[in-house]
Design a protein around this nucleic acid. Structure first.
Lengths: 87, 87
DNA sequence: ATAGTATTTAGATATTTGACTAAATATATA
DNA sequence: TATATATTTAGTCAAATATCTAAATACTAT
């Protein structure tokens, strides 16, 4: 849980998740969308991977990143307890 | 948006939110639940307040903290875009 | 094998964060 | 008014974070 919130606590990483919503992308393609060095993006991707928010799959010399929405479902459950509060 | 994720990225602050789900509490009551100094909790409460996740109301010499669930609703919307992804 | 492309790992650095103690502010009560 | 209680503000410090450049790893193609 902790690591998921941590992964979400960065605009770059949230942007990456939104990009992956449209389509799977390679690390290089993701790098092109930002004015941030490759290694930094690689680090962000690693955090997202640790949080299991994305999945990496090697395809030849490329690594494709894609969303894993099941973790989002879990986070949603946490939020739902607040949603249901009526007053 | 940024500040909300930041506020949520800490176990102490998330615990505070869960506590406030049960009932409104004074800063002092909240402090008692943790092995953390008053000033540190005060700082956490300030962040939650900045994120508008909680509301503070002065009542005599006490300050009561309560949840503001409308911000949770907004965050939920952000998550929902991922939820709806079908594959 | 050599060179080129894709990506990560390592190491360095500046900024942010969470904790503390001490001091300040605000209210209640004797 | 003087004192006690509740809470925040200020200042400090260690740990965590985000960024960078340089080097390492892995695959592709000549």
């Amino acid at each position: 849980m902790n690591i998921v919130f941590k992964a979400l606590n960065d605009p770059t990483r949230r942007k990456i998740l939104e990009m992956l919503l449209a389509r799977d992308m390679t690390a290089g393609e993701i790098v092109e969308e930002f004015n941030i060095s490759g290694p930094s993006i690689s680090h962000h991707l690693d955090l997202l991977k640790q949080a299991k928010l994305v999945v990496a799959e090697k395809e030849g010399q490329f690594i494709y990143y894609s969303l894993n929405t099941t973790v989002v479902d879990e986070i949603m459950k946490w939020f739902l307890q607040f949603k249901s509060k009526k007053k």
